[in-house]
Amino acid sequence: MFAKRALPLLAAITLVAPSVAQEVEPPAPWAQMTGKNAGAAGTCAGLDGSDTDFDCYMVRCDAGQLVFVFQPDMDADKVHGMNVTIGNGYAEKIMFDHMGHGESTIDLASHPRFLAAMVAAKPGDWANWETVDAEFEYTTFFELTDAGKRIKDVQKTCKR
């Protein structure tokens, strides 16, 4: 009798618990960024990089290097890396190369598989992201629709 009553409660706890430390960004296809992130391509709630209530994920050219940029809605210095998966074929632990000034960056020349997975993403694909060595560990997702085209546009302007 106890098992029959406990099962629905256990199922409810199982469904609720993972969502406590999980953030899901609203659907936002990749676009050319404007404002302070002009020249970059990425996704965030404001699509101009100025909305501080949501994380932004983008690719831009810094001093001739193609970089992935994470601009969180919290202190960027508190997230040191990520475990990222895209689709069924890509999974990697990546530590940020640089942190500070409200963002963390990864030199994509050092992570060609990550770059290739983002470029190969199909409409509706999402990247799954779990923080590594963060003050507050969490999991989130960001959309990759149109990422391939937008990243290629940035690559054309980025010369080493």
Rank of each mutant, 00 (worst) to 15 (best):
F2Q: 11
L7E: 15
L9P: 02
A12E: 09
I13K: 10
V16D: 05
V20D: 02
A21S: 13
P26C: 03
P27E: 12
W30L: 03
K36Y: 02
A38L: 13
A40K: 00
A41T: 03
G42I: 01
G42N: 00
C44K: 00
C44T: 00
A45W: 08
G46A: 08
S50F: 00
S50M: 12
F54D: 10
C56T: 01
M58L: 10
V59A: 04
D62T: 10
A63M: 06
A63Q: 13
G64F: 06
Q65E: 14
L66F: 04
L66I: 05
F70D: 04
P72E: 05
P72S: 07
D77A: 12
H80N: 15
G81V: 03
G81K: 03
V84W: 00
T85W: 00
I86T: 02
I86W: 02
G89K: 13
G89R: 13
K93Q: 11
M99T: 10
G102Y: 02
E103L: 09
T105K: 12
I106R: 00
D107Y: 02
A109G: 09
A109H: 12
F114A: 06
V119F: 08
A120Y: 09
A120N: 12
A121P: 01
D125K: 03
T131L: 06
T131F: 03
E135W: 10
E137V: 11
Y138N: 14
F141R: 15
F142S: 05
F142C: 08
L144Q: 04
R150V: 02
I151C: 05
I151P: 02
I151R: 04
K152D: 06
K152V: 07
K152S: 09
D153G: 07
Q155V: 10
T157A: 15
